[in-house]
């Protein structure tokens, strides 16, 4: 049993951000569905759904602020940037692992350490999400929240329908992401290992 040591992988601010974000996104997806498909769903009235969606949106934007100030403040944002020299190769081995090795019981080619906790695929995915998709979703959401106030910017982007289209496509993306992300979190050395770590901060190391 001694070979199993615990490493501290998720510092407190990251965990706090993560769960606010997770609950927030799930609620945004649910209220978002109610808003877009008012004729098919009856969880809330449209008026309630819109108000909730707006409040939660601001909570998620606030949480993003927490994430950004932590990661940029501590310089740990490096975690999110792949090493350009080994990136393609790393991706290949990681894909091979998820597509093949994992079924045979091969060890994960990526070793998680506090300084390098994401594998190449995670880096690519999280970098895209946190630097591009989530900010776009927050900005389009903000525009849609006060159409009149942001009229000029909306016109610049080509009209309300364009802004709405971007927000909706990303909304579907995040909807799918939540499922896939939860599933991927069960790929640790036990199904609940990653999940536990996101609460306690400690991941078991082999």
């Amino acid at each position: 049993m001694d070979e199993r040591k615990m490493i501290y992988i998720h510092p407190a601010p990251v965990r706090v951000w993560h769960w606010i974000n997770a609950v927030g996104i799930v609620l945004l997806v649910i209220t978002g569905l109610q808003i877009r498909f008012a004729e098919m769903m009856n969880l809330f009235s449209l008026e309630e759904a819109i108000n909730l969606h707006n409040y939660i949106g601001f909570v998620v934007i606030g949480a993003y602020g927490l994430w950004a100030s932590y990661y940029f403040g501590t310089g740990k944002i490096k975690l999110y940037f792949p090493n350009p020299k080994t990136f393609i190769c790393d991706c290949k081995t990681q894909i091979q692992y998820y597509g093949m090795g994992i079924f045979k019981g091969d060890p994960n080619p990526h070793e998680m350490t506090p300084d390098n906790k994401f594998n190449a695929l995670q880096k690519k995915a999280y970098l895209t999400i946190m630097f591009i998709l989530l900010p776009i979703q927050m900005i389009t959401g903000l525009f849609l929240w006060r159409i009149k106030k942001f009229e000029d910017y909306i016109d610049l982007l080509g009209g309300i329908k364009i802004v709405d289209t971007i927000h909706v496509i990303l909304f579907f993306f995040f909807f799918v992401f939540v499922f896939v992300h939860i599933y991927l979190s069960t790929l640790g050395h036990t199904p609940l290992a990653h999940m536990k770590a996101m609460f306690t901060g400690y991941e078991e190391h082999h």
Binding site: R36, E39, G158, I160, K161, D164, V168, I169
Partner: peptide, 17 residues
Amino acid sequence: YYVSHFYALGGTRIRLL
């Protein structure tokens, strides 16, 4: 998208999306 400056949330949504 010819009527890109008028969108009634949900009501005139683009079904293709």
